[in-house]
Design a protein around this nucleic acid. Structure first.
Length: 260
DNA sequence: CTTTCTGTTAGAAA
DNA sequence: ATTTCTAACAGAAA
Protein backbone atom coordinates (compact mmCIF):
# COMPACT_ATOMS: atom_id res chain seq x y z
CA UNK A 1 0.00 0.00 0.00
CA UNK A 2 1.56 3.28 -0.99
CA UNK A 3 1.15 6.59 0.79
CA UNK A 4 -1.41 7.82 -1.67
CA UNK A 5 -3.72 4.90 -1.01
CA UNK A 6 -3.11 5.12 2.71
CA UNK A 7 -4.27 8.71 2.73
CA UNK A 8 -7.34 7.69 0.79
CA UNK A 9 -8.19 4.89 3.14
CA UNK A 10 -11.46 6.38 4.29
CA UNK A 11 -12.64 6.88 0.72
CA UNK A 12 -11.42 3.41 -0.13
CA UNK A 13 -13.47 2.04 2.76
CA UNK A 14 -16.49 4.14 1.85
CA UNK A 15 -16.38 3.01 -1.77
CA UNK A 16 -16.18 -0.67 -0.87
CA UNK A 17 -18.37 -1.04 2.20
CA UNK A 18 -21.48 -3.01 1.31
CA UNK A 19 -20.16 -4.11 -2.08
CA UNK A 20 -20.02 -7.78 -3.04
CA UNK A 21 -17.10 -9.37 -4.87
CA UNK A 22 -18.50 -11.18 -7.88
CA UNK A 23 -15.50 -12.30 -9.91
CA UNK A 24 -11.73 -12.01 -10.05
CA UNK A 25 -10.15 -11.46 -13.45
CA UNK A 26 -6.46 -11.15 -14.28
CA UNK A 27 -4.12 -9.91 -16.94
CA UNK A 28 -0.43 -10.62 -16.63
CA UNK A 29 0.35 -10.25 -12.94
CA UNK A 30 -2.44 -7.72 -12.36
CA UNK A 31 -5.50 -8.92 -10.44
CA UNK A 32 -8.86 -7.36 -11.28
CA UNK A 33 -11.68 -7.72 -8.74
CA UNK A 34 -15.21 -7.15 -10.01
CA UNK A 35 -18.33 -6.34 -7.99
CA UNK A 36 -21.93 -7.46 -8.15
CA UNK A 37 -24.16 -4.89 -9.87
CA UNK A 38 -21.25 -2.44 -10.18
CA UNK A 39 -20.25 -2.39 -13.85
CA UNK A 40 -18.13 0.73 -13.41
CA UNK A 41 -16.12 -0.25 -10.34
CA UNK A 42 -12.97 -2.38 -10.28
CA UNK A 43 -10.32 -3.11 -7.71
CA UNK A 44 -6.88 -3.55 -9.27
CA UNK A 45 -4.19 -5.29 -7.28
CA UNK A 46 -0.55 -5.99 -8.05
CA UNK A 47 1.54 -8.03 -5.61
CA UNK A 48 4.90 -6.84 -7.00
CA UNK A 49 7.73 -8.56 -5.08
CA UNK A 50 6.26 -9.51 -1.72
CA UNK A 51 2.52 -8.89 -1.84
CA UNK A 52 0.33 -11.68 -0.50
CA UNK A 53 -3.37 -12.29 0.02
CA UNK A 54 -4.51 -14.43 2.92
CA UNK A 55 -8.03 -15.66 3.46
CA UNK A 56 -9.16 -16.78 6.89
CA UNK A 57 -12.50 -18.25 7.74
CA UNK A 58 -14.51 -17.11 10.72
CA UNK A 59 -12.99 -19.40 13.35
CA UNK A 60 -9.46 -18.14 12.74
CA UNK A 61 -10.14 -14.42 12.57
CA UNK A 62 -8.97 -12.78 15.76
CA UNK A 63 -11.47 -10.54 17.46
CA UNK A 64 -8.93 -8.17 18.97
CA UNK A 65 -7.90 -7.60 22.56
CA UNK A 66 -4.92 -8.99 24.42
CA UNK A 67 -3.40 -12.32 23.56
CA UNK A 68 -0.28 -14.19 24.51
CA UNK A 69 2.58 -14.71 22.09
CA UNK A 70 2.21 -18.41 21.48
CA UNK A 71 3.56 -20.16 18.44
CA UNK A 72 0.11 -20.16 16.90
CA UNK A 73 -0.16 -16.42 17.35
CA UNK A 74 2.96 -15.87 15.24
CA UNK A 75 0.73 -16.53 12.25
CA UNK A 76 -2.14 -14.43 13.53
CA UNK A 77 -3.57 -11.85 11.19
CA UNK A 78 -3.51 -8.96 10.81
CA UNK A 79 0.23 -8.69 11.47
CA UNK A 80 2.84 -5.97 10.94
CA UNK A 81 2.87 -6.56 7.18
CA UNK A 82 -0.89 -6.30 6.76
CA UNK A 83 -1.68 -3.20 4.71
CA UNK A 84 -5.41 -3.70 4.13
CA UNK A 85 -7.98 -6.20 5.18
CA UNK A 86 -11.56 -6.89 4.22
CA UNK A 87 -14.04 -8.08 6.81
CA UNK A 88 -16.54 -10.13 4.89
CA UNK A 89 -20.19 -10.58 5.77
CA UNK A 90 -19.88 -14.30 6.49
CA UNK A 91 -17.41 -13.52 9.25
CA UNK A 92 -14.32 -14.44 7.27
CA UNK A 93 -11.62 -12.00 6.26
CA UNK A 94 -9.26 -11.32 3.37
CA UNK A 95 -5.86 -9.80 4.25
CA UNK A 96 -3.46 -8.01 1.94
CA UNK A 97 0.08 -8.28 3.30
CA UNK A 98 3.14 -6.74 1.71
CA UNK A 99 6.47 -6.60 3.49
CA UNK A 100 8.20 -4.34 0.96
CA UNK A 101 5.14 -2.20 0.19
CA UNK A 102 5.66 -2.24 -3.59
CA UNK A 103 2.31 -3.86 -4.21
CA UNK A 104 -0.95 -1.95 -4.31
CA UNK A 105 -4.72 -2.00 -4.26
CA UNK A 106 -6.39 0.67 -6.36
CA UNK A 107 -10.00 1.37 -7.20
CA UNK A 108 -10.82 2.44 -10.71
CA UNK A 109 -13.65 2.62 -13.21
CA UNK A 110 -14.26 0.73 -16.45
CA UNK A 111 -12.16 3.17 -18.47
CA UNK A 112 -9.31 2.91 -15.98
CA UNK A 113 -9.47 -0.85 -16.01
CA UNK A 114 -9.35 -0.90 -19.80
CA UNK A 115 -6.36 1.43 -19.86
CA UNK A 116 -4.56 -0.83 -17.41
CA UNK A 117 -5.36 -3.87 -19.53
CA UNK A 118 -4.22 -2.19 -22.73
CA UNK A 119 -0.71 -1.95 -21.33
CA UNK A 120 -0.22 -5.70 -21.52
CA UNK A 121 0.99 -7.82 -24.39
CA UNK A 122 -0.36 -11.26 -25.29
CA UNK A 123 -0.12 -14.11 -22.80
CA UNK A 124 1.98 -17.14 -23.70
CA UNK A 125 -0.60 -19.35 -21.98
CA UNK A 126 -3.28 -18.29 -24.47
CA UNK A 127 -4.34 -21.07 -26.85
CA UNK A 128 -4.33 -18.55 -29.71
CA UNK A 129 -0.89 -17.08 -28.96
CA UNK A 130 0.48 -15.89 -32.28
CA UNK A 131 4.04 -17.22 -32.65
CA UNK A 132 4.53 -15.54 -36.02
CA UNK A 133 3.61 -12.15 -34.64
CA UNK A 134 5.76 -12.75 -31.59
CA UNK A 135 8.77 -13.59 -33.75
CA UNK A 136 8.13 -10.54 -35.94
CA UNK A 137 8.08 -8.38 -32.80
CA UNK A 138 11.33 -9.85 -31.57
CA UNK A 139 12.99 -9.07 -34.88
CA UNK A 140 12.62 -5.35 -34.06
CA UNK A 141 14.25 -5.60 -30.65
CA UNK A 142 17.96 -5.08 -30.25
CA UNK A 143 18.03 -5.87 -26.53
CA UNK A 144 18.72 -9.14 -24.79
CA UNK A 145 15.95 -11.72 -25.20
CA UNK A 146 15.66 -11.92 -21.43
CA UNK A 147 14.87 -8.20 -21.17
CA UNK A 148 12.18 -8.54 -23.84
CA UNK A 149 10.56 -11.55 -22.16
CA UNK A 150 10.33 -9.56 -18.93
CA UNK A 151 8.67 -6.64 -20.75
CA UNK A 152 4.99 -6.98 -19.83
CA UNK A 153 3.93 -4.69 -22.67
CA UNK A 154 5.47 -7.14 -25.12
CA UNK A 155 4.49 -10.47 -23.57
CA UNK A 156 2.46 -10.66 -20.37
CA UNK A 157 2.90 -12.77 -17.30
CA UNK A 158 6.47 -14.03 -17.25
CA UNK A 159 8.66 -12.94 -14.34
CA UNK A 160 12.29 -13.46 -13.50
CA UNK A 161 12.05 -17.10 -12.45
CA UNK A 162 10.01 -18.33 -15.38
CA UNK A 163 12.01 -16.39 -17.97
CA UNK A 164 15.18 -18.14 -16.84
CA UNK A 165 13.40 -21.49 -16.88
CA UNK A 166 11.87 -20.87 -20.33
CA UNK A 167 15.23 -19.83 -21.82
CA UNK A 168 16.81 -22.97 -20.42
CA UNK A 169 14.02 -25.14 -21.85
CA UNK A 170 14.46 -23.50 -25.26
CA UNK A 171 18.30 -23.64 -25.04
CA UNK A 172 18.66 -19.91 -25.62
CA UNK A 173 21.31 -17.72 -24.00
CA UNK A 174 19.64 -14.96 -21.95
CA UNK A 175 21.89 -12.30 -23.50
CA UNK A 176 21.19 -13.30 -27.08
CA UNK A 177 19.75 -10.36 -29.01
CA UNK A 178 16.01 -10.76 -29.41
CA UNK A 179 16.28 -9.98 -33.13
CA UNK A 180 18.67 -12.89 -33.60
CA UNK A 181 16.18 -15.55 -32.55
CA UNK A 182 14.96 -17.84 -35.31
CA UNK A 183 11.24 -18.49 -35.63
CA UNK A 184 11.82 -21.91 -34.18
CA UNK A 185 13.56 -20.44 -31.14
CA UNK A 186 10.90 -17.76 -30.68
CA UNK A 187 8.19 -20.39 -30.76
CA UNK A 188 10.09 -22.69 -28.41
CA UNK A 189 10.75 -20.07 -25.75
CA UNK A 190 7.22 -18.64 -25.72
CA UNK A 191 5.69 -22.10 -25.72
CA UNK A 192 7.96 -23.20 -22.87
CA UNK A 193 7.10 -20.03 -20.97
CA UNK A 194 3.39 -20.72 -21.20
CA UNK A 195 3.78 -24.37 -20.24
CA UNK A 196 6.02 -23.55 -17.28
CA UNK A 197 3.53 -20.96 -16.02
CA UNK A 198 0.65 -23.42 -16.23
CA UNK A 199 2.62 -26.15 -14.51
CA UNK A 200 3.69 -23.75 -11.78
CA UNK A 201 0.11 -22.58 -11.24
CA UNK A 202 -0.95 -26.21 -10.96
CA UNK A 203 1.62 -26.79 -8.23
CA UNK A 204 0.79 -23.64 -6.29
CA UNK A 205 3.54 -21.32 -7.56
CA UNK A 206 7.15 -21.00 -6.49
CA UNK A 207 8.10 -20.42 -2.86
CA UNK A 208 11.54 -18.86 -3.13
CA UNK A 209 11.76 -17.30 0.31
CA UNK A 210 8.43 -16.73 1.98
CA UNK A 211 5.73 -16.79 -0.66
CA UNK A 212 2.47 -18.30 0.58
CA UNK A 213 -0.81 -18.82 -1.20
CA UNK A 214 -4.13 -17.41 -0.04
CA UNK A 215 -4.50 -20.25 2.43
CA UNK A 216 -0.95 -19.85 3.79
CA UNK A 217 0.54 -22.78 1.88
CA UNK A 218 3.95 -22.81 0.16
CA UNK A 219 4.14 -23.28 -3.60
CA UNK A 220 5.80 -26.46 -4.81
CA UNK A 221 7.11 -25.39 -8.20
CA UNK A 222 10.54 -24.81 -6.67
CA UNK A 223 10.95 -28.60 -6.87
CA UNK A 224 10.78 -28.32 -10.67
CA UNK A 225 13.20 -25.44 -11.16
CA UNK A 226 16.06 -26.38 -13.50
CA UNK A 227 18.31 -23.31 -13.36
CA UNK A 228 16.81 -20.57 -11.20
CA UNK A 229 18.84 -20.40 -7.99
CA UNK A 230 20.92 -23.36 -9.15
CA UNK A 231 24.16 -21.45 -9.76
CA UNK A 232 27.31 -23.47 -9.02
CA UNK A 233 25.45 -26.76 -9.40
CA UNK A 234 25.51 -29.11 -12.43
CA UNK A 235 23.15 -28.54 -15.35
CA UNK A 236 20.41 -31.20 -15.29
CA UNK A 237 20.99 -31.76 -19.05
CA UNK A 238 24.77 -31.68 -19.52
CA UNK A 239 26.31 -31.38 -16.03
CA UNK A 240 28.10 -28.13 -16.88
CA UNK A 241 28.07 -25.81 -13.88
CA UNK A 242 25.14 -23.36 -13.98
CA UNK A 243 26.23 -19.73 -14.07
CA UNK A 244 24.65 -16.70 -12.48
CA UNK A 245 25.06 -13.31 -14.14
CA UNK A 246 23.10 -10.06 -14.27
CA UNK A 247 20.92 -9.33 -17.30
CA UNK A 248 18.47 -6.44 -17.53
CA UNK A 249 19.29 -5.71 -13.92
CA UNK A 250 18.08 -9.09 -12.75
CA UNK A 251 19.83 -12.17 -11.41
CA UNK A 252 20.04 -14.55 -14.36
CA UNK A 253 20.78 -18.27 -14.24
CA UNK A 254 21.75 -20.31 -17.28
CA UNK A 255 23.81 -23.19 -18.57
CA UNK A 256 26.79 -21.81 -20.52
CA UNK A 257 26.96 -25.01 -22.59
CA UNK A 258 23.31 -25.76 -23.39
CA UNK A 259 22.15 -22.19 -23.97
CA UNK A 260 23.48 -20.48 -27.08
C1' DC B 1 29.23 -2.89 11.26
C1' DT B 2 28.49 -2.26 5.77
C1' DT B 3 27.24 -3.90 1.38
C1' DT B 4 24.57 -6.64 -1.70
C1' DC B 5 20.74 -9.18 -2.94
C1' DT B 6 15.69 -10.23 -3.56
C1' DG B 7 9.60 -12.81 -6.74
C1' DT B 8 8.33 -5.94 -10.08
C1' DT B 9 7.74 -2.07 -12.64
C1' DA B 10 7.05 3.16 -13.27
C1' DG B 11 9.46 6.84 -14.51
C1' DA B 12 13.77 9.25 -15.27
C1' DA B 13 17.89 9.41 -17.80
C1' DA B 14 20.61 8.36 -21.61
C1' DA C 1 11.71 5.78 -30.15
C1' DT C 2 14.14 2.59 -27.57
C1' DT C 3 16.92 1.02 -23.97
C1' DT C 4 19.08 1.26 -19.42
C1' DC C 5 19.17 2.78 -14.81
C1' DT C 6 17.15 3.96 -10.40
C1' DA C 7 13.91 4.29 -6.85
C1' DA C 8 10.19 2.63 -4.05
C1' DC C 9 10.92 -0.65 0.75
C1' DA C 10 12.19 -4.19 4.26
C1' DG C 11 14.80 -7.80 5.63
C1' DA C 12 18.08 -11.70 4.94
C1' DA C 13 22.59 -12.97 3.76
C1' DA C 14 27.37 -12.23 3.01
Amino acid sequence: MNDKTTRNNSKFERDLTGKTFSHIDRIGKLMIFEFKNEPDLFLLSHLKMTGQFFYQNKSKVISGGGHSMTKEDSEALPNKHTRVFFELTNGSALFFNDMRKFGYLALTNLAGKNIAKSGYGPEPTATDFDYKKFHAGLSKKGRAIKAVLLDQTFIAGLGNIYVDEALFAAKIHPEKKAKDLTFKEAKAVSKAGGEIMLKSIASGGTTFQNFKDTGGQNGNYKDFLKVFGKQNTPCPRCKTIIKKIKVAGRGTHYCPRCQK
